[in-house]
Amino acid sequence: MTSQKVQLKSKVTDADGDKSALTFEVWTADAAGNPLKKVSIDDNEWGVIVSPYVASGSTVTVDVPVGKLALSRPASSGPTGPLVRTTRLIAARRCT
């Protein structure tokens, strides 16, 4: 495999039915799912991706630029069991 495309998706819901933009941020997490460190996924000052405005009820998809997320495999097992590196999307938030 020579390249991988990473996309983040979220359904937009606005109580008033207004168009909304979402911000996407990614964090590393420990084995229990607790956030550890924010991962910069865009070159803006906040390191987040902001979607275009879309209608409430639709799904927005954003592409993560190549090289912003590294592939990681579980590390080899140690004396206390396997070590796992986890990255998770914490939230997509509406921009107002």
Rank of each mutant, 00 (worst) to 15 (best):
A92K: 04
T2G: 08
A55G: 09
S56W: 06
A29W: 01
R73W: 10
P35G: 07
G33V: 08
P79G: 08
L36K: 15
I41M: 02
G78P: 03
V62S: 04
K9C: 06
E25R: 08
D42M: 03
V26C: 02
A31P: 00
E25S: 10
T96A: 15
L36A: 11
R85M: 10
D42R: 02
T80H: 10
T61A: 09
T13P: 00
P82K: 14
G78W: 04
A31W: 03
Y53V: 10
V26A: 02
S40T: 12
R94F: 01
P35M: 07
K5F: 02
S77K: 13
P52E: 15
Q4W: 09
V64P: 04
W27Q: 06
F24Q: 02
I90A: 08
P52S: 14
F24L: 04
S51H: 04
T87R: 07
A15G: 03
K19H: 08
T80P: 00
N34P: 01
D42I: 00
P74V: 04
D30R: 05
S76I: 11
I41S: 01
T13K: 12
G57P: 06
V66W: 05
E45P: 13
P65K: 03
S40K: 15
V66Y: 12
G57N: 07
N44A: 08
S72G: 11
P74Y: 05
T2N: 13
Q7C: 12
K9E: 09
D16M: 10
V39K: 05
C95T: 14
C95V: 15
W46R: 12
